[in-house]
Nucleic acid binder design. Structure first.
Lengths: 218, 218
DNA sequence: CCTACCGATCGGTAGG
DNA sequence: CCTACCGATCGGTAGG
């Protein structure tokens, strides 16, 4: 019994591993060449298997795409849920969230790039499922900002447009971030955090990306 | 001679009009269905012409795409060049630029969405030409921030990452903006401007998207 | 899970 | 600038 269980476990793990490899290679090719320029034959060839090996695991090319895109979006939602479930004031939560959100985007850079490009190649049902994750993210994020403002913990003029702006700064990282560039992911997260929220410990009122000179100075 | 000239003028205008119509219809279809899901037959059908009508004007499907993408990126670069050529301090220029940059993105929403999705379907030469416009934009924008900081007109920690952050907020508009939504383009531009640069006239030190409560308040 | 193949789509063009 | 067509690619599967 123990042996049988162990066998099943290994068999499942092997299946899981094969599945992961397919997803990984597909994501790699979809990212570098584009979904439309990547044939299933090319994916199979790079995996050194034949097409039916892939079709035994994924019903269609678009299903593979859906899995890749879901992972990208889900990662951000998971980070948000984790932060919301943790204790602390809204301001502190926001800081932790922006930081971890950047890290999630950088870790999922490839998946998010593929999603942003290839949405139109998703089956309607898959597109809808992913879209509902995005809406859930927006709703929860905006709610966090509203709560922080209501608590007097954050000063925000318009929570909705602020959520879109912060989302924009962080999401845009998937466009410009290069692993071989100036900053490691952790440092990038810190700098973006500082840009969005300011260094509260250093100068309480000096926050925001850009500060125009105060009238008194002119 | 006058007549001949006038004839030529009209003929050219008609040719120009036909060309524009092809681009417009193609952009419409590429945007709503995706480039890969849009056949040249579909473009021709919607224009109520045959394919050779299109191929007389554009050598290939990807050439049509290149024109659409170029327009999207060029619009932002033109706005930046216009603001840089105008008189004024860096801080004032930045404010005008952010405002007009938002308007340019909203006017070119469709072209920019297509570009962000379909880059991989561009011919290498076209992709390179567009990429060099993007690099020119980044270089000039960063230089504006550096100049503003050197003049003491702006307070910026890291001009490069600040340029990417502002670029992210504004570019991201093409993802979420809906013409039928809460804000007209002009109002959207004002609000994003305020978010990025603060209301210098109202509260000199209160700028940035979010301000955490000052320690004294806790 | 492999070999071999089919059927459909579609960019582009020859010929007039 | 239209009619008619070709040639290639490729997602997916039948049969074993």
């Amino acid at each position: 019994m123990n042996l049988a269980q162990s066998d099943d476990g290994i068999r499942e793990q092997v299946q899981q591993l094969k599945r992961e490899r397919v997803i990984e290679v597909a994501a790699d090719l979809f990212h570098s060449r584009g979904f439309g320029n990547t044939s299933m034959d090319a994916v199979a060839e790079k995996l050194k298997v034949t097409k039916p090996f892939i079709y035994a695991r994924f019903g269609a090319k678009s299903e593979l795409l859906a899995e890749i895109c879901s992972r990208g979006i889900r990662s951000s939602l998971l980070v948000l849920d984790r932060v919301l479930a943790s204790p602390g004031a809204a301001g502190a939560k926001l800081r932790i969230f922006v930081h971890d959100f950047v890290l999630a985007v950088l870790r999922n850079q490839r998946n998010l790039t593929i999603y942003s490009r290839e949405q139109k190649h998703l089956l309607p049902a898959d597109a809808q499922a992913i879209n509902s994750m995005r809406r859930e993210f927006d709703r929860k994020f905006t709610a966090l900002l509203i709560r922080g403002h209501a608590d007097g913990d954050l000063t925000i003029e318009d929570p909705q447009i602020t959520a879109l702006a912060i989302g924009g700064i962080v999401s845009w990282c998937h466009i410009w971030y290069r692993p071989e560039g100036r900053f490691a992911p952790e440092e990038t997260a810190d700098r973006i955090c500082e840009l969005v929220l300011g260094r509260t410990h250093a100068r309480a009122a000096s926050t925001g990306a850009v500060r125009t000179a105060e009238p008194a100075h002119i």
